[in-house]
């Protein structure tokens, strides 16, 4: 099941300049692709387009040759840079996980989540711990592709390594595709099979 971006262009409003222009790439199931671009290039916008949060002005995103479904659970899930914004502050974390699927206790350890955290509120956990919940939530939904938008930029290197080891091992287990948006070349080389430079439009 390949995921393709075909000739994607995007602008926020009519009359404004294009944020993204004619982006093309393709990723296969089980592959890890790193998207590398300088600041201000529209990486977050691209990530949102790929996960269906925004609709492109022209071009299309095809999963297995068909456009992403409008309704129902999206097979492409986005994990954002700011976990604290992506989690409802009034929910206990157990509910956060249950939002996307049935929670089985044996899965917790694979996600690096301590059982005691489930009864807490988001403000009682650190960013790294919350990010694990965002990862777990995306995985529990049964996604086929994960878009990771700078998911470890705000975290320390040990937590970064912990989170990526969870993401990568689950991806291998489920033959998922990962698109990792990052500005860190060392990280991109370490986790990805291929690195695509959005600015130069070439694989490195």
């Amino acid at each position: 099941m390949p995921l393709e971006a075909k000739n994607l262009s995007f602008r926020y409003e009519r009359g404004l300049p294009l944020v993204l222009e004619n982006i093309d790439f393709k990723i296969e199931a089980g592959e890890v692709l790193a998207l590398f671009a300088p600041s201000g290039y529209g990486k977050t916008t691209l990530a949102k387009l790929l996960a269906g949060y925004l609709r492109p002005c022209s071009g299309e995103i095809l999963l297995n040759g068909a456009p992403l479904p409008e309704k129902g659970v999206c097979p492409v899930q986005l994990i954002s840079q700011h976990p604290e914004k992506a989690i409802n502050p009034r929910w206990r974390l157990k509910k956060v996980l249950e939002e996307s699927g049935e929670l089985r206790e044996d899965m917790l350890s694979a996600f690096g989540i301590e059982k005691a955290w489930l009864e807490r509120f988001p403000r009682e956990l650190s960013g790294g711990e919350l990010q694990r919940f965002c990862v777990a939530r995306a995985l529990l939904s049964g996604a086929e592709y994960l878009i990771c938008d700078e998911i470890s930029t705000m975290l320390d290197v040990i937590t970064q390594a912990q989170i990526w080891s969870v993401v990568l091992s689950e991806a291998r287990k489920r033959n998922m595709g990962i698109i990792a948006v990052t500005h860190n070349m060392h990280l991109a080389r370490r986790i990805a099979h291929r690195v695509f430079d959005l600015e130069k439009r070439e694989y490195i």
Partner: peptide, 21 residues
């Protein structure tokens, strides 16, 4: 909010989001 957008992509209906979020 981001978490409402996430909820939508997790396939939750408008009514569910209204009641829960």
């Amino acid at each position: 909010k981001d978490y409402v957008a996430v909820s939508r992509r997790l396939g939750k209906s408008g009514g569910w989001i209204l009641v829960n979020h």
